[in-house]
Each structure stands twice: as structure tokens, then as C-alpha cells.
């Protein structure tokens, strides 16, 4: 599966956590996702490990292969290089942090093979 690139989060947005607390997107911590998922009746937290990063169809795109969840399902996504993911214990990370910072004013780390990203799945989906 290779979905088309999706838009990145609007960095100046305010996010309301499951407990009602308001935070800016750039201030979110790993614990915020974990705690919100614990409260949530619909979503649970999962992890996706970056296995490979290849260049994509266009010069500013990359194809990232993830190993998802306990079943280690292989999922590929093609995204723009500035697209940020949220890495456990590290925060927002992209393949081109400079571009992400420039475009979205979202400070970012470099996304690397082996990074474990936060993902959220619907409870009871499987």
C-alpha cells in the first residue's frame, strides 16, 4: 500500500488532549499520546518502526517502510520529505527537518531507520 502524500499537521494549531488539557502541536510529548490513548474508548496506541527510507517518485518525496505493531506488518507510505512523524521519546521527526521547520515552524529531529513512531489504531478493529 502506498497512499499519496498527506498534508502535515498545522503547527500553530492547539490540540485538546483527552483529559481536556490544551497544548500546541509543537509542545506535544510522548506521554500526551500515551495518556490520551489510555483515556480514549476508541483509540489505542501502537508503534511503527522505520525499516527503510527510499527516495520516492518525485524529488521531494520519500517512501518509508514501517514494521507495524506486534504482528510487524510491513506498511509502506510515500510522503513529502518534510512530513513529520512522532517518534517515541523524541517527538516530531522528519526526513528533512530543516524543511519541516521552515515550512511549518515545527522544530523537528531527523527521522532515521530504527526510530519507533507513535501510531494510533481503533480499539476492537481486529
Amino acid at each position: 500500500a502506498a497512499p499519496s502524500p498527506t498534508p502535515a499537521p498545522v503547527p500553530s494549531s492547539i490540540i485538546q488532549l483527552a483529559d481536556g488539557e490544551l497544548k500546541r502541536v509543537e509542545d506535544l510529548k510522548t506521554e500526551d499520546f500515551i495518556q490520551s490513548a489510555e483515556i480514549s474508548s476508541e483509540l489505542k496506541i501502537d508503534s511503527s518502526t522505520v525499516e527503510r527510507i527510499d527516495s520516492g517518485q518525485s524529488p521531494n518525496a520519500v517512501v518509508i517502510q514501517f514494521s507495524v505493531g506486534e504482528l510487524k506488518a510491513q506498511v509502506c507510505v510515500e510522503v513529502l520529505v518534510e512530513y513529520p512523524f512522532f517518534v517515541f521519546g523524541q517527538g516530531w521527526s522528519s526526513c528533512c527537518p530543516d524543511r519541516t521547520t521552515q515550512l511549518f515552524e515545527l522544530s523537528c529531529a531527523k527521522l532515521c531507520v530504527g526510530d519507533v513512531c507513535v501510531s494510533l489504531t481503533l480499539r476492537g478493529l481486529r
Binding site: 492547539i14 490540540i15 502541536v25 506535544l28 512523524f85 501510531s119 494510533l120
Partner: peptide, 19 residues
């Protein structure tokens, strides 16, 4: 400034097995 519920970030996170 708009306020979004936290789950609106789901599409922006890493893929899941259902993707």
C-alpha cells in the same frame, strides 16, 4: 487559533496495520 481534538492528529502519525 483553532482547537483540534487530539485524535485529529491520527492521520498524521505513523501507519497502522489497517492502512
Amino acid at each position: 487559533v483553532p482547537v483540534f481534538p487530539w485524535h485529529s492528529l491520527v492521520p498524521f502519525l505513523a501507519p497502522t496495520q489497517s492502512d
